[in-house]
């Protein structure tokens, strides 16, 4: 069977790129390469991963300087052509700054950097989550200071109408409420896609729970779903 070709973008300050690369190459046994932010060629790639970290030291606004890098133009073109893009944590912030996803990520409600496992309820109607059951509750870690999703009320309505909310923070039974919301995100939003469904941004880190040795493989379904999508 043909191997999928993944690419992990790399910016100065990215720090989760190796975790993503490891999952793709060693767990999923697919091809994976790094793309440095000064490159412009992203042809012949099935899926782009924008990893977590602190690109450009989070200067100006998180993700804003990465969104001006050389690779940005190619990334927008890749997205317009329907290419699969997943942005994790800082990757999500970069995607909103690129305007490939609506809204933005504010400072956490508590003002603290939060690093812990959270429960997420999954909407499986996307190319990134088809391997999960609908409304399945999974446990995935978050590690961020700016993960508080915010958007205008018009965008909120659009997100709901177009079924773009893919991951929501919830309690262990799948209830979305204030106490299960770690960072103050609007409606407990943890991950969204664009309207076309080919771009996903999520604050939790599925790549950190994709290997049995960690005692939890709840995140693996994201990468398996992408593989499944490209198989079809």
């Amino acid at each position: 069977m043909r191997k999928n070709k993944f690419a992990v973008l790399n910016f100065p300050g990215s720090n989760c790129e190796k975790d993503c690369h490891f999952v793709i190459e060693h767990i999923l046994k697919q091809d994976c390469k790094y793309i440095w932010h000064e490159e412009t060629d992203i042809n012949n790639v099935d899926c782009i991963i924008i990893p977590g970290g602190f690109s450009y030291g989070d200067y100006l606004r998180t993700g804003s300087i990465a969104a001006q890098s050389k690779i940005a133009k190619s990334l927008k073109k890749y997205s317009r052509q329907g290419g699969t893009i997943i942005g994790i944590c800082n990757g999500f912030q970069i995607l909103t700054e690129l305007k490939l996803l609506p809204g933005t990520l504010l400072r956490n409600r508590s003002l603290n950097f939060i690093c812990k496992e959270v429960n997420l309820v999954v909407n499986n109607k996307s190319r990134f989550t088809s391997k999960y059951n609908h409304n399945q509750v999974v446990k995935v870690p978050i590690a961020h200071a700016e993960g508080n999703y915010f958007a205008s009320s018009t965008i909120q309505k659009e997100l709901i109408k177009n079924n773009q909310i893919i991951f929501s923070y919830c309690d262990k039974d799948g209830n979305i409420n204030n106490s299960s919301n770690p960072n103050g995100s609007l409606n407990g939003i943890a991950g969204i896609t664009n309207k076309e469904g080919n771009v996903l941004g999520m604050m939790p880190h599925p790549e950190r729970v994709s290997e049995k040795v960690f005692g939890n493989i709840d995140g693996l379904g994201v990468f398996e779903s992408i593989l499944d999508f490209h198989k079809n």
């Binding site: 100006l60 606004r61 804003s64 700054e97 809204g103 933005t104 504010l106 915010f150 958007a151």
Partner: peptide, 8 residues
């Protein structure tokens, strides 16, 4: 385009 995020 860059310096301001008009969402916030």
């Amino acid at each position: 385009d860059f310096l301001v995020n008009e969402v916030i």
